[in-house]
Amino acid sequence: MTIKVVRGNPTPEELAAALAVVRVRAAAAASAPSGAPGAGDSWADPARIATRRLPPPGPTAWGRTYWPG
């Protein structure tokens, strides 16, 4: 794995912290069973909002579309 800093001048401690986060996330993704839903999958699932009747069109309809209740 190669990490490249494209902007800024991070300290060695900042680079170590960023690399630790990337390694932990990669290890968690590798250890997850295949086909297991991720944390963000339920939010993006169209079936979540398709079960309710959508609000009528209007300037604030987009906010009511995704907000539960």
Score class of each variant (00 low, 15 high):
21 V>W: 05
22 V>N: 04
22 V>S: 03
25 R>M: 10
26 A>M: 09
28 A>T: 14
29 A>I: 03
29 A>E: 07
30 A>P: 00
31 S>C: 01
32 A>C: 02
32 A>W: 00
32 A>Q: 10
33 P>W: 07
33 P>S: 14
33 P>G: 15
34 S>Q: 12
34 S>V: 15
34 S>D: 11
34 S>H: 12
35 G>F: 05
35 G>Q: 01
37 P>C: 04
38 G>T: 02
38 G>I: 03
39 A>W: 09
41 D>S: 02
41 D>H: 02
41 D>M: 02
42 S>R: 08
43 W>G: 00
43 W>R: 05
43 W>L: 09
44 A>T: 12
44 A>G: 08
45 D>F: 08
47 A>C: 01
49 I>V: 15
49 I>F: 15
49 I>R: 14
50 A>T: 08
51 T>M: 05
53 R>W: 03
53 R>K: 15
53 R>L: 10
54 L>N: 07
54 L>Y: 15
54 L>E: 09
54 L>R: 15
55 P>S: 03
55 P>E: 06
55 P>A: 06
55 P>D: 04
56 P>F: 13
57 P>E: 04
58 G>P: 04
58 G>A: 11
58 G>F: 12
58 G>E: 04
58 G>C: 07
59 P>F: 14
59 P>T: 10
59 P>G: 08
59 P>S: 10
60 T>G: 02
60 T>E: 04
60 T>H: 10
62 W>I: 14
62 W>D: 05
63 G>E: 06
64 R>T: 11
66 Y>I: 14
66 Y>P: 01
66 Y>L: 13
67 W>R: 15
67 W>G: 01
